[in-house]
Design a protein around this nucleic acid. Sequence first.
DNA 1: CAAATAGTGTCTTTGAGACACTATCGT
DNA 2: ACGATAGTGTCTCAAAGACACTATTTG
Lengths: 233, 233
Amino acid sequence: MNQAEFLKAYNKEQYDRPSVAVDLVLFTVKEGALSVVLTKRDQHPFMGMLSLPGTFVGVSESLDEAVARCLNQKMGLSDIYFEQLYTWGEVDRDPRMRIISVSYYALIPEGRLTETDKGSEIREQLYPVDALTADDTFSLAFDHKKIIAYGRERIRNKVEYSDIAFELLPEYFTLPQLQSIHEILLGKPLYKANFRKKMADRVTPTDRMANPDGHRPGRIYNKKEEATDHEKQ
Amino acid sequence: MNQAEFLKAYNKEQYDRPSVAVDLVLFTVKEGALSVVLTKRDQHPFMGMLSLPGTFVGVSESLDEAVARCLNQKMGLSDIYFEQLYTWGEVDRDPRMRIISVSYYALIPEGRLTETDKGSEIREQLYPVDALTADDTFSLAFDHKKIIAYGRERIRNKVEYSDIAFELLPEYFTLPQLQSIHEILLGKPLYKANFRKKMADRVTPTDRMANPDGHRPGRIYNKKEEATDHEKQ
DNA sequence: CAAATAGTGTCTTTGAGACACTATCGT
DNA sequence: ACGATAGTGTCTCAAAGACACTATTTG
């Protein structure tokens, strides 16, 4: 079978193939709680219920491009950290038709939500993750609750061996702020002295200090650049 | 827009949507080397080159079912451990058409390859992974070399905190055999005494011994069942 | 017994955890 | 000085790493 024959035969079966969408779990930390952006569905199925923002994948865009487009069109955001989570392919996960969902999670510092026109709108779509997933009586559209729980576990694990916590903070931050993010992602308190020892070689101090109200100011740091081969020599 | 209208509008765009396939990285340990099953392509594109076994995902089967079908049809295998790796969605990864590939890895003990009619055939399709990925001049069809490298990294990491190594051994094994699997997956030698201490609570001894030629026999173990809630009480 | 592999005892090193202490801001 | 938070020194403890030793088989 040559290429032309292949395409012809394949297209005949076109109507019998699944569709592909990306679904996005956009995390941020708001008021000390890990939160996720959800939109209220205005169509069947699951009309009126909360769901993850998502979009169908166009034939001439990559998966990552579809995610970037979704972030841009639905939330006016660009240059956001995101990463693929898992691909969900149960046959009946959408009651209308067969849709395979490639899920991603994204991380954004709360402050960056205001940098767009839709900022205030998005702030009102934030829901605390742990309350959401703990409540068995509360239900989300499709399998989106499961996807959020999966993403929450991923970042809980990943914060221990990677630098994702920095994606939830602005460029400049204090160590107590960084510790707070870690505690929220891990879901448990950390010892200050130990935390600082572990972070020591991942951050670089600036000569600036935070200006708090009524107590000692903390030094401002930023994330240390990864050492290049050149710098190592 | 109601459901009927949605489906009608959606189907009109049918020809502009990506297709979905699963691609499978089937690992086994052969002659002390981590190896992967590759098939020689008999069609364009990449005719004559090596590629991963894979199949298109049918509209009425889940992704996991497509993987199980692929294992069964192409290799006559069932009840194999497998797990999703990553979904590859670059637009030009297949020169014919837009195909999104959901990749999986699978693990099988070398001995189980002979339990099927196609066993001897499959044995000849095994290629050592590390030689394959180290050789820059050697190239595979599509982006399959990248997928194999990704799977190889996944199992290298996962062997440290999970029980996947057992999937590459038969039900009953000796500790030196288990250590050998770990060393191959990690790519480095391990200290015998330390390894055995770490494994002590993950295996249960039997009263049987291996019968080697010309040296002390090793005790035969099997994997310890996970403690259930009932057993914990 | 020698060759070969199975299996163990124990010292060292490393890093996580716990906790008590000192430092510096505004009022 | 006091309340509040920032920041440090050091002891403990558990696990990983390293290495030397003993044990059991066949020929």
